[in-house]
Design a protein around this nucleic acid. Structure first.
Lengths: 119, 119
DNA sequence: TAGACATATGAGCAAATGTTCATATGTCTA
DNA sequence: TAGACATATGAACATTTGCTCATATGTCTA
């Protein structure tokens, strides 16, 4: 496996030392995929709006929909995605489901992203 | 414009106070879009690998390609995208372009994401 | 228990995305 | 100045994504 990579490098690379160093510390496929998945969860305007609203308080599906002016179905689909990635959780109160942020790492990511945007 | 939102709320929302509060502090469309754009830049495995490699050292296009085992064309396309979002920059040395991270906010986001993944 | 209500879910569709292939651009060197 | 080389770019294509619409599920209340 390393042979294959080095072959490729020998065919065409400029600084072999740098390539070898880069490969040694390279992020694994799995890790890169997980990382990409987290950021993908935050890469949509609708989901940003939902998560931003949930930073302040828990909200039920229809109130999220009313807040961001989107159909309840669309919101529900997005919440499903966010649930599957353990980014939001919910509690039931009768027929109403209240959603909230599951993980404060996400809140930190959002805050840091906002800093980046607002400078 | 607020009328429209309130109308929608009156049609169907559960906790009007919460909706009003959420709307008051709501992130703007522009800000949400910018934020989503940043995270979108980090939401692909190839780009994660490129950026992770650049956290360690600057690299030219073909060495990035050799490192992550992808075509130079594909790498170049992704670098173009990352350049357009001011996430990477480059310096020229003869015919070789060396890319590096443009903004340490991005590095912080990546590190924080990695923490989240590795816990 | 029937019906209303809050939410979830599946199918379908248009738009966006990431790669490959072919070609263009710009820089060095003989 | 011609040719080699490093990279950029455009078109094309398959895949993914986010919405809508219709329908299903689960919970409460009369």
């Amino acid at each position: 496996m390393p042979d294959k990579i080095i072959d490729k490098c020998e065919v065409h690379c400029i600084n072999r030392d740098q390539v070898e160093l880069a490969q040694k510390q390279m992020i694994s496929d799995d890790e890169a995929l997980e990382l990409a998945e987290i950021f993908k969860a935050l890469s949509d305007t609708t989901r940003i709006k939902i998560l931003h609203a949930l930073m302040l308080q828990e909200l039920c599906v229809c109130d999220i929909a009313a807040t961001i002016s989107l159909s309840e179905s669309a919101v529900s689909h997005q919440l499903r995605l966010l649930r599957s990635k353990k980014i939001v959780k919910f509690r039931r109160d009768g027929k109403v489901l209240y959603y909230s942020l599951d993980d404060n790492h996400i809140e930190n990511l959002l805050k840091q992203g906002l800093e980046h945007v607002n400078e």
